[in-house]
Nucleic acid binder design. Structure first.
Lengths: 339, 339
DNA sequence: ACTATCGTGGAAAGCGCATTCCCATTCTAT
DNA sequence: ATAGAATGGGAATGCGCTTTCCACGATAGT
């Protein structure tokens, strides 16, 4: 159906080999007049190389796969943008898969990428790999066949990636809040079996303990806006029926959760930060438009994506990066003087 | 390097053809005992079909391409999520390209997808195609070779897609605002050569005119948060130096622009909606967390993506869909009684 | 002037798989 | 019991391209 290289070669009156050499960067450069003829023929016929055939012949696909939990979540879409940008003019194409928070789909995604023979796979927002034998086995298989695996956010031993020091960052964040004057904390801890949320809440709690403080409550629930909304609503209801909401600082293990919590607080007609302070984690771009401005621990999300992409491109260079977040206190945790 | 079908066939002691038939849905089903043997061998060896080779042999790739302007923009990421969801278990993979608002990159993206022989291409946030000869020619070429093209938001004659009735929706929105009591309007019109922003501002202005009103000002600028921020800041500065800001309703041709405008308004210490009312377009999910809640025209973004994906899958079914937005007035355009 | 070397284009062999024939069985019908 | 039709497995071809490997003419070296 489409124009093949053979057609171009015929049109130009040269051999297939020659046509291939001029159109697709080969080490051997045919004479300039021949090259021009071939290029003219290609142009005239509207030739586009068949990437599948090239991949088969070259045994490299120039494809990388990115798996996220939800592409509409600002956390992931910001990372995705970073990955995209890192690709630049490299000619590498991005295959995207959304797992919708389902480990099963994550495995399917990796399998699909393996079938596509992607040169690299970037895994973001994965569950704890250690607990997922099947995924781990897949990945090992992939690596044995020369695939590059980049994990974002998980501390893995034998593969590259961007490690996020959630625990230390959370500690640091707690420290800042304490020195800003906060003493009573509630933690919306997300899912216990998600490494990310576990590290964040642990780090935070750890720091509290070392400062002689203790969280009033640690509430688990889905690692999502909705989960936080429900958890916070529950909490407020309980407080109210127990005599009233007293002032606390609510640490949410992600900004998206913080947004859910904020909504619950608003619906209860409480003010932020006067009645309840809120702090998140990640510093997603969305925060910029929230009032009051919300405190968080800033992670360079787009850079993280970019680094991951670059590492995927440079096949083997730059194996590991550890990033820490930096606490950013804004209005949502502001204490009026003297309180 | 990787395990090939041949290896599986040898391991199972059958021919290549047989192995192919059992592992990849063929019309001919080998005997059950043979099938089991083959499957066992595949399992044991960790076989994954080479999608490139399959694509070459079948001459269909099970790949679709999605091009967006910026994957981190909620408008596009919501559409992308819809597309993703529509794919479901079809086994079709998504190739993603971001143009970064650069027509050049859009062309490159389409070329790349053509090379990948994607079965379909979904174009969202494209510029006016009529004005872009090169892109149009590419697309025609693609279609002649059996490619499916889906345009989101552009009224194209000879290809499928989701058409958004921006003009009528904007008129409708204007009508609602007028009947809510608004009389003085400013329009942040985005880029004049972008069909989407042109239709939206034209529709809005048209309705004003038919109601005997006229916009105080129509300000063009980049179709982005930043552009709107600058435009709005400028406007406010001019107003202030001309004696003070009087009350208007600012229509922004997209929600993202509305967010930029809101920021500018806030920085000028003006209140929304008391001093200035703001209304956007799209109803991106992000709006849910903004205070005050912002008025807009709701577009079913995720559904749009889903429909586009479904149309891309059903190769030829369901050619065209026209969607209109529905006005949603919220706090940002609320008029106090008696004003 | 004659051989050794280099530079260049073409022929052909795969890359991993689907699929079309082809042939050997087994089954059905008479 | 036998011709004919099914049934099911295997050999071989081709998808579009890259990349050896060859052959041939031009150039350089002595």
């Amino acid at each position: 159906m489409a124009v093949r290289l053979t057609d171009v070669a015929n049109e130009a009156g040269v051999s297939l080999a020659t046509a291939s050499r001029v159109l697709n960067g080969s080490a051997r450069k045919p004479a300039v007049e021949i090259s021009d003829k071939v290029r003219a023929a290609a142009e005239k016929l509207g030739y586009f190389p068949n990437a599948q055939a090239q991949a088969l012949a070259r045994s490299t696909t120039k494809l990388i796969g990115l798996v996220v939990r939800d592409i509409a979540d600002p956390y992931f879409s910001t990372i995705a943008r970073g990955v995209q940008r890192s690709l630049g003019d490299s000619g590498v194409q991005l295959l995207l898969a959304s797992t919708e928070y389902d480990p099963e789909r994550e495995i399917e995604a990796v399998q699909a990428f393996m079938s596509q023979r992607t040169d690299a796979i970037i895994l973001s927002g994965s569950r704890s790999l250690g607990e997922n034998g099947q995924l781990l086995k897949l990945i090992e298989n992939y690596q044995e066949n020369g695939g590059q695996v980049m994990i974002i956010g998980q501390p893995m031993t034998d593969m590259g990636g961007i490690q996020i020091d959630n625990e230390a960052t959370a500690e640091h964040l707690a420290a800042e809040l304490i020195s800003a004057g906060h003493r009573r904390f509630v933690v919306l801890a997300g899912e216990a079996n998600l490494l990310t949320s576990r590290d964040r809440s642990n780090g935070f709690l750890e720091k509290l303990k070392r400062s002689g403080l203790d969280a009033e409550e640690v509430i688990s629930g889905p690692f999502s806006r909705e989960g936080a909304y429900v958890a916070m609503s529950d909490y407020l209801k309980r407080q109210k029926s127990a005599g009233g909401v007293h002032r606390v600082c609510v640490f949410c293990v992600s900004d998206v959760m913080a947004l859910g919590a904020i909504r619950a607080i608003r619906e209860n007609r409480l003010r932020i930060p006067e009645d309840i302070a809120v702090v998140g984690f990640d510093d997603i771009p969305t925060l910029i438009d929230i009032t009051p401005t919300v405190s968080t621990a800033r992670l360079p999300l787009e850079e993280i994506g970019k680094w991951a992409g670059e590492m995927a491109l440079n096949h083997g260079e730059l194996r590991k990066i550890v990033v820490s977040g930096v606490p950013v206190l804004r209005e949502s945790t502001q204490l009026a003087d003297g309180q």
